[in-house]
């Protein structure tokens, strides 16, 4: 446990100095600042005003870029350490593989989750400065959803970089997974539905299995289901499950999948050659 925390701590220190972390923080913090500067928050469109609207847009952008950000940076550093023999050296010291793997995971999680979370908080601060009521329920829900979205993609990144030895192949696989998951959010699902070639049940199941779609549905579940932004699949789910269960599912499901993937990664780390 002592070594696990040490490894997590050192990983965080290493990330804080790295370029990717810098870019990552600037992108998310910058996005939020941009929304306020350009006055997105002031316009009244589709019934949203102020901070709620800004947060909703922020979350829509995050859906697209957060997964790929997490995948690329994590896969690069984990597989990169193996290819450059950093792993060989670090693991020639008496630390258990358990401490090393989970310590890295803990450290990484902090560095991928904190910047988006802080960007959200930045939004809240801007909102407070502008005055008006703070949508606390939304802020809390979005923090929770960002937590589980970060977790599932971190788990996936650890899974891919331990199963696939080469950095290039692991990066390629990350892209493919990301594109496929993105393709199967509402728009594509709706296309499938309209074609009538697959049953609605299949479409709904696909939606429920896709962590990006689950995140999306969770994020818009607070709003009136009549709104067009929601899309047909989300509408159907909201209608049948009700928003409370949907929110619970949207939070728990990605965490379960993230744990499962990272655990399989851990088994592979122990059972396969380390280098």
């Amino acid at each position: 446990m002592k070594n696990l925390l040490l490894i997590a701590y050192l990983d965080v220190k290493e990330s804080l100095r790295s370029k990717w972390f810098y870019v990552y923080s600037v992108v998310f913090g910058g996005l939020m600042a941009l929304f306020f500067i350009t006055g997105v928050s002031d316009s009244v469109v589709m019934g949203f005003t102020g901070l709620s609207r800004t947060l909703l847009i922020f979350i829509q952008v995050t859906i697209i870029i957060l997964p790929i950000f997490i995948l690329i940076t994590t896969v690069k550093s984990i597989s990169g350490d193996r290819e450059s023999n950093v792993l060989e050296y670090m693991l020639s010291f008496p630390v258990s593989l358990k401490d090393y793997y989970w310590g890295k995971m803990l450290g990484r999680f902090s560095t991928v989750f904190l910047p988006v979370f802080l960007a959200l908080i930045l939004g809240v601060v801007f909102g407070m400065l502008k005055g008006g009521v703070l949508p606390w329920k939304m802020i809390f829900l979005y923090s929770a959803l960002l937590f589980s979205l970060s977790f599932v993609f971190l788990g996936l990144a650890f899974f891919l970089s331990t199963i696939l030895k080469s950095t290039d192949i692991a990066l390629g696989a990350s892209f493919v997974v990301w594109i496929v998951l993105l393709a199967f959010i509402d728009i594509a699902l709706m296309g499938l539905m309209l074609q009538n070639r697959v049953s609605d049940d299949v479409v709904i199941t696909l939606a429920m299995l896709n962590p990006i779609e689950v995140f999306r549905i969770g994020a818009i579940s607070l709003f009136d289901p009549e709104l067009t932004v929601i899309g047909p699949v989300a509408y159907y789910l909201l209608d049948t499950l009700g928003s409370t269960w949907l929110i619970v599912y949207a939070f728990v499901y990605p965490i379960v999948i993230g744990l499962l993937l990272s655990y399989i990664g851990y088994i592979a780390f122990r059972k396969k050659d380390l280098l």
């Binding site: 040490l6 290493e14 023999n85 950093v86 010291f93 008496p94």
Partner: peptide, 30 residues
């Protein structure tokens, strides 16, 4: 096993930790 082995690799690995951090790792793990 690794408690009692010292190892120097063929090429120095491009460890991104600072020297101080590397020393803490070594100090605390071994």
């Amino acid at each position: 096993v690794l408690k009692y082995i010292s190892f120097i690799p063929q090429l120095p690995p491009p460890v991104k930790l600072s020297i101080g951090e590397l020393l803490s790792f070594v100090e605390k793990s071994s």
